[in-house]
Design a protein around this nucleic acid. Structure first.
Length: 369
RNA sequence: GGGUCGGUGGCAGAGUGGUCAAAUGCAUCAGACUGUAAAUCUGACGCCGCAAGGCUUCGGGGGUUCGACUCCCUCCCGGCCCA
């Protein structure tokens, strides 16, 4: 299903077959966490050539519920999205919620108990349940439930998270096989399943986790938790070494990564797939990505905060090198005005532009000589 | 004309003798954002200063007081009620 077409040093360029079409790697997925990319409609996404996207098991389980989505004909049908979808397991949500506020829930070896931030109701999610929900969603790619420790945790605590992540990965894989049988899904029609490598900033823990996950066997492996330190510095060594523990023929998924330069770096270290909220969230907050150089060396782009005073009378396009809906039709001054007046069109335009920037970046990575 | 209530920082609006350069909200300015509890969050927002601190403010003028945005007099302006 995944085939490497070209390799140069550690960089890989390849093709991935899914039930919803072929994907060229490396690729970037925006986060359509709750079944939509905030402020955008499917036409917007199709217009910029969007391919695969990420939805979230945890959020869709809470609202509107996986059974409703199943009755709708699956998540693609529900969203009316023809291209591939990957569901994240919800591990990140459960743990980031609980980490931020221990009152929100509790993690045990069995699973995670947590309170819904929507209405306070209690829930219990196990690795098995996460996989079952993802089958109900009917995605092309799914992710195991993992234990996501903050990098600031002690080594002991991270070791525990690694142990639990491996244990849960095995349970997820069992459940995955069970669901394939129960649902009579043919081998060639099966969704891909990804393990997630934890271990914080410790390369040896990452290695151990990776080896154990490979022993269980997945279609791809993710880099879990944060890939930067508390100051935002890229953890190059750990990200590089973790990739090396993943078999060549498996997909390498850099979860939650990242800034354009982080994506470029990760790709050069052998990672194939990315997802991040940056282009959409920062776009909604007024930050626009702008192309500078044609190469992908340092300073190949810059960002502007369009809400800044200095753009009040800037009648040029956001990015003259861009042919997106925003840059073709509106000036910086107009976009600033849209933001200043709180017009939702501002967020839509900024999201379209930033996603186009990310897609173009991936094009450049795939087409680099 | 009589009565009455009120005039506070860009706006709205607290404060009603010292703890007030003056709550809070909005607006404004800047920053943050990395598997989305994020159209969110943080900071600045009288003037000078990196700071300590200093200086000038609560319609105008004049008083009372050790001390006034807060009390008194007067003028100006506005709302409402009566003629």
């Amino acid at each position: 299903m995944f085939e490497i077409v070209k390799k140069e040093n550690k960089k890989r360029i390849g093709k991935l077959e899914t039930m919803h079409g072929e994907i060229n790697t490396p690729f970037f997925m925006p986060d359509a966490t709750r079944g939509f990319v905030k402020s955008l409609g499917k036409d917007d996404l199709e217009m910029i050539g969007m391919g695969p996207m990420v939805v979230n098991t945890y959020h869709l389980y809470l609202e509107p519920g996986e059974k409703l989505i199943k009755r709708a004909g699956g998540i693609n049908e529900f969203m009316n999205w023809k291209r591939p979808l990957l569901s994240d397991s919800g591990g990140y949500q459960i743990f980031s919620l609980i980490h931020k506020n221990p009152k929100m829930g509790r993690i045990t070896d069995e699973g995670a108990t947590f309170r819904s931030p929507l209405n306070g109701s209690r829930h219990f999610i196990t690795p098995e349940r996460s996989i079952e929900i993802q089958f109900d969603l009917g995605v092309d790619m799914m992710v195991v439930l993992d234990d996501v420790p903050p990098n600031s945790y002690s080594r002991e605590k991270i070791e525990e998270a690694v142990r639990r992540t491996i244990d849960w990965a095995a349970r997820c894989k069992n459940e995955y096989e069970k669901q394939l049988k129960e649902r009579k899904i043919k081998r060639e029609d099966r969704p891909l399943i990804f393990g997630v490598i934890q271990g914080g900033p410790y390369a040896d823990l990452r290695e151990y986790c990776a080896r154990e996950l490979v022993r269980i066997g997945f279609d791809g492996y993710g880099f879990g938790a944060r890939h930067v330190d508390s100051e935002g510095n890229f953890l190059e060594e750990v990200v590089r070494e973790t990739a090396e523990y993943i078999p060549e023929k498996a997909l390498r998924f850099a979860l939650g990564i990242g800034t354009p330069e982080d994506i470029v770096r990760c790709h050069s270290l052998g990672w194939d797939m990315f997802d991040c909220v940056i282009p959409t969230r920062e776009g909604r907050h007024g930050r626009l990505f702008i192309r500078k150089e044609d190469n992908l060396e340092a300073d190949f782009y810059e960002t502007i905060n369009i809400t800044n005073e200095k753009y009040r009378e800037d009648f040029s396009p956001v990015d003259p090198k861009c042919d997106c809906l925003l840059c073709k039709n509106y000036t910086r001054a107009y976009l600033r005005h849209l933001f200043a007046t709180g017009e939702p069109l501002a967020m839509r335009m900024a999201s379209i532009h930033n996603l186009k920037f990310y897609l173009d970046l991936m094009d450049r990575l795939r087409n680099a000589k």
